[in-house]
Amino acid sequence: MSNTQRSNLLHLGTITLLAVAFFILPTYHVGNLSRIMVLAVYAIGYNFLFGYTGLLSLGHALFFAAGMYGLGLSMELFDLTTAPALVVGLASALVISAVIGFLALRTSGVSFMIVTLMFAQAGYLTILYFGTYTRGDEGFVIQQADRVLFGVDLSSDTGRYFAALALFSVCFLAVAHLVQSPFGRTLVAIRENEERARMLGYDTVTHKLKAVIISGTISGLAGAAYALLFGYAGATFATVQYSIFPLLWVLLGGAGTTIGPLIGVIFMFYLIDLSSSITSAYMLIAGVVLVLLTLFAPQGLAGELRKRVFKWMP
């Protein structure tokens, strides 16, 4: 079996497994998985920039929130139906990531990290400042009756799960395909040695800008989907914490692997969920696990698997 075939098998197998999970897992875990899949889309978006292009952003919550509020506000204030609102959400994330990318890419390394962080912080404060429309920290509810897309009730367990699965599958496969394309390979070349990529004649700045836009738009899509599937948009999702989460997920799952983001989200979600039923100090456990992982699995879970067992893994 060629490596491409193996990769395809892994990707399709993952999706099949997730589809089957709906029928065999208890209700509680089905609910969790639908959240996890949407958050994994966010992580996939983040991984595209961080894992494949080598740009560490601390401002992705802004893109997530752009999608969330683009969809939420257009439904709340202008009574748009789901499909056009989703487009608005996607478009706002695209525009904002293009602007931020354009400005922030003048910097690199830690400066890039801080600039994205500050733009995101300004975005968070802007949501609060326009509290009259956004209801600030409190946020607003997207009513159950409005959450219907192409006749599918997204507030039902089944509708939500398969909508999340569809979204996840599309992003998962698209990014997996993209990183194998010449464009994706150029990004990896930039990650490994930007100077060299430039000497070889690649327009690295345009490539990086495209990567920011793709990454930001996928993150925004996740934000819009989160609001739509779970019926709530709020400023908490624009805080720094939500910029750090995708970084953690990706680092834990394995940066620069296609499956890593999903694994990272699942790991983190259940780490908190399980340890919180043992002790109220569950963040302490989370902290210890993070430290242990960096000590003993520095490439992340999928990254270690690739290094030690499945060398072919994408």
Binding site: L248, L284, G287, L290, V291, T294, P298
Partner: peptide, 23 residues
């Protein structure tokens, strides 16, 4: 122990952050 690897240091210190805060 992690050789001051940039990425790993970020995760490790985030872990440390949670440990200190929670304690």
């Amino acid at each position: 122990k992690i050789n001051y690897d940039p990425d790993r240091t970020i995760v490790a210190t985030i872990g440390l952050l949670y440990i200190i805060q929670q304690t």
